[in-house]
Amino acid sequence: MATWFITGVNSGLGRAMTERLLERGDRVAGTVRREGSVDDLRAKYGDQFWVAHLDVRDLPRVREVVDLAWDELGRLDVVVNNAGYGLFGAAEELTDAQVVDQIGTNLLGSIAVVRAALPHLRVQGGGRLMQISTYGGLATNPGASLYHAGKWGIEGFMESVAKEVAPFGIGVTIVEPGGARTEFRFGSLQLATPMTAYDDTPAAMVRGAQDRSRPSLGDPVKMAERIVAAADEEPAPLRLVLGSDAYRFITTALRERLAQVEPQERTAAATDWVGPQ
């Protein structure tokens, strides 16, 4: 029986993972922003399901909750950063408050959870950190610049942390889902107030994100099962791609990036220092 710490367990992949883990007998320490949203799971699973109220933008509270979970449960085998939301709209259309909240939740909150968990994982001699990202952490679409900013930022952070903590037996996995049939697009997703200047530009594409006539490809239950299974893989897969759309977007973006960079090998080297050392 493993003990998992998962942020944002009230809906989406967080909820699907929690249900799968509890069903198979693991313990879950989950956090929610909306109190009462997982009362059904608490009633069904009792002490197997530990819950705390947490807004990951409250960085001191993040550490308090992680420490409390550790103290009460005795160990944390897998720590999953799942809490987050989408913010779509051209950069110019967003308010300052929207920018701050998006980065605070999707980037700073995830960083805080990792920093709070690492001392405990080191003490117990290992564990696994899992970051729920998106294919948008490696590829971009117009109209999602701030969402990409947070996801690209957390992917860089997690990739570097993976190298820092490997000597302690701590594995890191960045999960790259494509679109999933959750309430991500229809619940927490925020859209900027549109500016007419962007009406006929690529950035306007995201204004239809909440159109229910265009369902996402991904099955959240299958995605949750794949994430849970990956936690047992050794060595930890640094990236876990979920969905044919995610695979397509990521591989296309990486190929395009290489095509832009590789022709510059000679001109890049031309700026090297060639004088006396």
Rank of each mutant, 00 (worst) to 15 (best):
I250P: 04
A209K: 10
P235K: 03
E234I: 05
T201Q: 15
V38E: 07
V56M: 07
F249G: 11
T140F: 09
G275C: 03
A259S: 14
M195D: 04
A192W: 04
G178L: 07
L107G: 10
D77F: 09
T267S: 14
G8C: 05
G171P: 05
R42S: 11
N81C: 14
Q190F: 02
S110Q: 13
D96P: 10
R239W: 10
N81S: 11
G171Q: 07
T3Q: 08
V161S: 06
T251I: 13
T173N: 06
D199G: 03
G137P: 14
D101L: 08
A268C: 09
L21I: 12
V51H: 01
A197T: 01
R128Q: 12
N81E: 07
R34S: 00
M1S: 14
V66A: 05
D47K: 06
T3I: 15
P235T: 04
R207N: 14
G136I: 01
T95V: 15
A231W: 05
P263D: 06
P119F: 09
R181N: 07
E19A: 02
D200M: 08
G178C: 14
A246Y: 05
F49W: 09
L41C: 03
T252R: 14
V123S: 13
G14C: 11
L217G: 09
T140G: 13
D211C: 14
R226W: 00
G143Y: 04
Y147S: 03
I111N: 02
A149Q: 04
G30Q: 07
N82R: 00
M17L: 13
V80A: 10
Q124G: 03
V175C: 02
A116M: 06
G243K: 04
D272V: 07
V228L: 12
Y45I: 10
A259Y: 12
V28C: 09
E233K: 02
A259L: 14
V38C: 03
V175Y: 04
V114C: 01
E265H: 14
L189T: 09
I132G: 08
F168Q: 07
Y247H: 15
R212T: 11
D26Y: 11
D67N: 12
I227G: 07
A204T: 08
V100C: 10
R226Y: 00
V100H: 15
I103K: 13
E233Q: 05
D58Q: 08
D77P: 06
L107H: 10
R75S: 12
E72R: 15
M158L: 10
G30D: 03
G30T: 04
P167H: 14
V175T: 08
V28P: 09
V172A: 01
A16C: 00
R34C: 00
A253V: 14
A224I: 01
A43V: 12
R57F: 06
R239G: 03
Y198W: 13
A270P: 12
R75L: 00
D232K: 11
L238T: 10
A117K: 02
R20S: 03
A268V: 09
E19N: 02
P119E: 04
M223S: 03
A90Q: 05
S160E: 11
E234P: 07
V172P: 00
N141I: 05
D77V: 03
K151P: 13
M158N: 04
K222Q: 05
